[in-house]
Design a protein around this nucleic acid. Structure first.
Length: 871
RNA sequence: GGGCCCAUAGCUCAGGUGGUCAGAGCACCUCGUUUACACCGAGGGGGUCGGGGGUUCGAGCCCCUCUGGGCCCA
């Protein structure tokens, strides 16, 4: 672009997205420049990488627009903005999508098939039943994951470009790329070396469907129907004929019962503490113990402890030093094991019948057997109670005992917990009240972070284990690779000093097959994007970052885990500010989610109303505020569209008046006054942006803009066309200055229309222009008029104008109907202000003569004589 | 059970440090083809700021409490 473009006859929003995206890409408008960064200072954004396998909905556009608006302001305010985009493509969501899309599932025991072609291609939306999924090797499966995410990411990028995110697309990263895997593994190895990562064989929350362990942060409670079953336990010793009745929602776990428990203060059960009872059906002797977590008001107040029905069972088991009698396997079925603790032949027979049954079937079988033995008292009492689920799962979690990897997070380390709390205090939250959610989460941590996942498409945990001479695996002495050798895949590569043939052999090794939790990599997005240990120059420029924008529901996961990793690695916050966007709710105030079927996809809205319109809608909401959205009547989007079109038209009109003389300045009182009002807008918008209140910045700008169009342009229109050189130049300078400033004030929000307009008079992008300043506006004012300039004259004329318009409306005459004479009344000071622009006021009202009267408390007019309208 | 947020015109939302703060847009009514814009313009009607207490000379704005909605954590 060497010359400004011609002003079109009929400016329109259509096509601007494609036109300007191509131009921005070609000119590198949003490229991060390291030299500029060193010179100007950096504003770096740790962008949330959307889940590549998900679909973007209107809520994403909402929050990402907030971030972009901030980035654009900071760029204008003089920073070199580091604003990369990432794709979170590793993990379960991708696996699940691949299964459904291609009709396959991963079976790691199968060999790789180089010529494999999936049975389906694009079974979008429907889930393919597990039985219909073709089993394929892990490598084939991962290849399909790669293939699909690359396709998805292209669509995402297209959408984001259309929305107009000022991202530097050359900085894009993926959480599953070799570089990301290496970074994630490197961070993990350092955690391991410092003793922050460790293994434990412990009861673990387990999703039966996905067959993987899940972490505390991935839990959610869901209300489910259940039933209290009253079971009779039998006392021992001197009280053999007495029963103790407990109520349980999980009678199928009876064979895993290891004790009964009641609250230490519960007088009903105090006599039983220290005694034993025999379980119904299985006749296993178990102790009756006191513990503070037993709830006297729940059921009969005494509960059975099983290994393991819920997380409380785990606490009891650990604190009361009870035996582990796990009976549920990783498939959610009763394990085929020898229950050595059950000695009663009938009990062993009953257990044998349970083997292989699902939890559901096992419960039916146990209940029937209890009925038959008379140890089930009465009918089960239906209840509604919260049950723990994996947030992505649809079957209740079980608890199984397995070896897993953990990263310390402060749950068992008061000092670390306090440090993390302090980091939360140091972080600047926008809005501030979101800080509480972080504190609540850190306070509520009850276990270290479980990071191993029994999945396939993820970052491999980079360790091997020695196989001892007797063939057992020595998990206590993991073999780690050198950082220089990363990334590694222990399931297909041998550790240094071993040959692949030694895999699984005595004296050899085995590779860890688990992968890291997605969040264990996502918690490193500052490192992944910022070239940590890969590009030290970049890392030094951008880290710690300025901004972490994100959704409120992942404060406990993404935000917290990123703070944790940064603390463990660098003992500092990863960023100075965090902005939390609200989410989108439907007109009934229900959160938008796939399962509710109320998700709105943005592409249609962008095409129908334009990206600027959608951006306006998003920008109009403050951070942290949930927004109701009705896709059938997107009012705010329509308003945004109207605004964007108005900008095009107003600019065309203003520029159409022609150019002022080169040395012209704003001289007439009303013109100076308009620029004073504009200065005030700049001050307010700047202050709002600096306080991360973009909605306020937009509001003051928009409000001024409409007044500018409806009043100021109308008021000076005739003068701008007139032969009076002085008056005309003052108007033209004022109009052009105001337009130029307004375009830059709007540019963070209305990115396309402002750029289009700017191109009519400039060869550079409006998005690379400095943020407007008060002193710059003063430059447009004649030097002797700058002192004490205020908006009084403009306000007075505007207010007076309304009374004239009202008079015409009430007289039911056209606005252009000439007035022969009229008297304007008002307070003396305001009348005198208006008098300073009396010629303009007369021209806009078509009044030949206006009498001024200093009386009354507000503007009114009287003695209006209309002239007949000609023609 | 604990915590946080929200409840202002029919709708969607603004209302720094308490004193023209009762606002904007949409919707509604009336009028209007004026040197950009009918994807427009002008004017107008409309709310005892969820209920109840309290602090204050004065409270959407501060405190208490109740009700309803949402979210987070147990």
């Amino acid at each position: 672009m060497t010359e400004p473009a011609a002003i079109p006859d009929k400016p329109a929003l259509e096509g601007l997205e494609a036109k300007w995206n191509a131009r921005w890409e070609e000119q590198g408008t949003f490229h991060f420049n390291r030299e500029a960064a060193r010179a100007k200072g950096v504003y770096s954004v740790d962008t949330p990488p959307p889940t590549a396998s998900g679909s973007l909905h209107i809520g994403h556009v909402f929050s990402y627009t907030h971030t972009d608006v901030i980035a654009r302001y900071q760029r204008a305010a003089g920073h070199e903005v580091f604003y990369p985009m990432g794709w979170d493509d590793n993990g379960l969501p991708t696996e699940r999508r691949v299964q459904n899309y291609f009709g396959v599932r991963c079976d790691p025991t199968l060999p790789y098939d180089p010529g494999f072609e999936p049975p389906l291609h694009g079974a979008e939306g429907r889930s393919v039943r597990a039985a219909d999924q073709r089993p394929i090797s892990r490598r084939n499966f991962i290849e399909l994951c790669e293939r699909l995410t690359v396709e998805d990411e292209q669509q995402f990028e297209h959408l984001w470009r259309m929305v107009g995110l000022s991202v530097d697309w050359s900085q894009t990263y993926r959480t599953i790329s070799d570089e990301s895997i290496a970074a994630s593994q490197r961070a993990f190895l350092r955690n391991l070396a410092r003793g922050e990562a460790y293994q434990a064989d412990a009861p673990t929350l387990w999703d039966v469907t996905f067959r993987t362990a899940v972490a505390q942060a991935e839990l959610e409670d869901r209300e489910r129907d259940g039933a209290y079953h009253a079971l009779a336990f039998h006392r021992t010793g001197d009280h053999e004929d007495e029963d103790v009745v407990i109520e349980t929602t999980r009678p199928e776990l009876l064979p895993a019962c290891v004790a009964l428990v009641a609250h230490p203060d519960d007088e009903r059960y105090q006599p039983l503490f220290g005694t034993t009872v025999r379980t119904p059906l299985f006749d296993v002797e178990v102790p009756v113990l006191p513990h503070r977590l037993a709830q006297p008001d729940k059921g009969s107040g005494i509960a059975m402890i099983c290994t393991f029905g819920d997380v409380t069972d785990v606490v009891w088991w650990r604190e009361l030093h009870l035996p582990n009698r796990t009976i549920i396997g990783q498939d959610g079925r009763i394990l085929d094991l020898d229950p050595t603790w059950i000695t009663d032949p009938h009990g062993r027979e009953v257990f044998g019948e349970l083997v292989g049954k699902t939890v559901f079937s096992a419960q039916k079988a146990v209940v029937e057997a209890l009925r038959a033995s008379g140890e089930l008292l009465g009918d089960p009492k239906p209840i509604h109670h919260p049950v723990k689920f994996f947030e992505k799962g649809d079957r209740p979690l079980e608890i199984v005992s397995t070896r897993q990897w953990y990263i310390r997070n402060g749950a068992n380390d008061p000092e670390l917990r306090a440090t993390l709390k302090r980091r939360g205090d140091e972080l600047q939250w926008h809005p501030a009240f979101m800080h509480v959610r972080y504190d609540n989460w850190v306070d509520g941590l009850n276990s270290d972070w479980l990071v191993s996942r029994q999945r396939y498409f993820g970052v491999p945990i980079p360790v091997w284990y020695p196989v001892l001479a007797d063939g057992t695996v020595d998990h206590d002495h993991p073999i780690a690779p050198a950082e220089a050798d990363l990334p590694v895949d222990p399931s297909s590569q041998a550790p240094k000093g071993f040959a692949e043939a030694q895999r699984g052999e005595p004296g050899g090794f085995v590779g860890e097959v688990d992968v890291l939790d997605t969040w264990a990599t996502s918690s490193l997005t500052p490192q992944l994007a910022g070239g940590w240990e890969r590009d030290p120059e970049l890392w030094d420029l951008v880290a710690p970052y300025d901004l972490r924008p994100q959704a409120q529901d992942i404060i406990r996961t993404w935000l917290f885990s990123t703070v944790l990793r940064s603390e463990l690695e660098d003992h500092r916050l990863p960023w100075a500010h965090t902005t939390i966007s609200g989410f989108i709710v439907d007109p009934d105030r229900k959160k938008m989610s796939k399962s509710k079927g109320n998700v709105v996809t943005p592409l249609g809205l962008l095409e129908q109303y334009s990206a600027d319109a959608v951006r306006y809608w998003a920008s109009a909401y403050k951070l942290g505020t949930d927004a109701a959205f009705d896709p059938h009547n997107p009012k705010q989007i329509k308003v945004g569209r109207r605004l964007a079109i108005k900008i095009l038209n107003a600019a065309k009109f203003v520029l159409g008046f022609g150019e002022p003389a080169a040395d012209a300045r704003s001289t007439l009182p009303i013109d100076v006054s308009l620029l004073a009002a504009l200065s005030d807008v700049v001050t307010q918008a700047t202050k709002a942006f600096d306080a991360y209140d973009h909605a306020r910045a937009l509001e003051v700008t928009e409000s001024f803009f409409w007044t500018f169009c409806d009043d100021y342009i109308e008021i000076v229109k005739e003068r701008a066309y007139s032969d009076d050189a002085a008056g005309r130049d003052s108007a033209l300078v004022t109009l052009r200055t105001a337009l130029d400033v307004l375009l830059r004030l709007f540019a963070p929000f209305i990115v396309y229309a402002t750029e289009e307009v700017y191109s009519w008079t400039h060869t550079e992008s409006v998005h690379r222009q400095p943020w407007p300043t008060v002193s710059e506006i003063a430059e447009a004012i004649a030097p002797d008029r700058r002192e004490g300039a205020d908006d009084g004259v403009f306000q007075a004329v505007s207010d007076a104008l309304i009374t004239f318009r009202r008079a015409k409306t009430e007289a039911k005459v056209k606005m252009r109907t000439p007035i022969v004479t009229a008297t304007l009344h008002g307070p003396a000071d305001r009348v005198r202000l208006a008098a300073q622009a009396l010629d303009d006021l007369r021209s806009v009202t078509k009044a030949q003569h206006v009498e001024l009267a200093e009386d009354g408390t507000e503007f009114t007019i009287s003695d209006v004589a209309f002239a007949p309208l000609e023609g």
